[in-house]
Amino acid sequence: MTPDLLVVIAQEASTPSKFAQMVVDGVNLGGIYALLAVGFVIIFRATQVLNFAHGALAALGAFLVASFATVLDIPGRWIPNAPAWVSWTGAVFLALIAAALIGMALERVFLRPMVGEELFAVAIVTLGMDIVVRNITNDWIGPQPRPLGDPFGISVFDLGWVRIPYTVVTQTVVALLAVALIAYFFRSRMGVAMRATAFDQEAARAQGISVGRVFSTSWAIGAVLAALAGIFISLFPRRSTGVDPTTAFFAFRAFPAIIIGGLDSVVGALVGGLIVGFAEAGASSYLVGENWEFLGTGFAGIVPYLLMMVVLIIRPYGLFGTEEIRRV
């Protein structure tokens, strides 16, 4: 995939520093991967479910924003004089709430009956969920990409030596805010309950923690983070045309981030996301040109997987993952 950003840059007369631009691209990609990875890891830690439907949830979130902001015009139709960014933000919030509800519903219907089953069996259930959610979402999206109707467009902060798209700034702020909120959440009553559940479901139950509510909450958080990532995937530096049927597959590249960080570490997910994002951005800006023609097209897209393989050979449980202790 060619990042649109680089195409835009190539057309401009003044060329910004390649390295700085690569960093911006890396922050953009890394932020998206980190959002996806953190949501995934929270779900995995709290509910012991490996969520293969994460990409589908991301695409669904982006589609919800697109339909709320452009087709249905909610909440814009009730506040006719509000500036564009207000109604768009409103649409995003509504979409996030809807995504959270969908995530909770999916968990309640498909995964609650599987509590206590083998990890692998549950993972395959989410693979089935991915097929269902992805196909229905893609049917709603239709063959044409749907623009999200965002107020950012392709505007950039032009500093001469680097161009920073508005969306990247927004995304960084949102991602940092999300991480801060999650860190704060883990200290709240519910957060402590979630950590207890992650530690030992039965013991948590015995302490009077409503494990079912913990499951719902973690899926709500995971779905919101996935939807946020889905939104930023469908905005300017990545895909300015909007959400399309391939958006769901974008999230598959966040899986290496999760594995590199370690399946059960939130910090690892953050770090892994950034590593993978920078690796991919670096590959797509430096490993091009005549010297690298033998790599063919789409090499940047598999850099995350290659990185994952290398990390797994050295550390089979990722950089921050807990090593599984094998007892007889």
């Binding site: 692998f120 899986f255 897209g301 598999i302 994952m308 089979p316 990722g318």
Partner: peptide, 24 residues
């Protein structure tokens, strides 16, 4: 070397790397 769920991801990566090789 990798166990259980990590293996699912290694093989997932294999599909994508394979697709890249087949394409090019």
């Amino acid at each position: 070397r990798v166990r259980g769920l990590y293996l699912a991801f290694v093989t997932l990566g294999l599909v994508f790397i394979g697709e890249y090789i087949f394409r090019n």
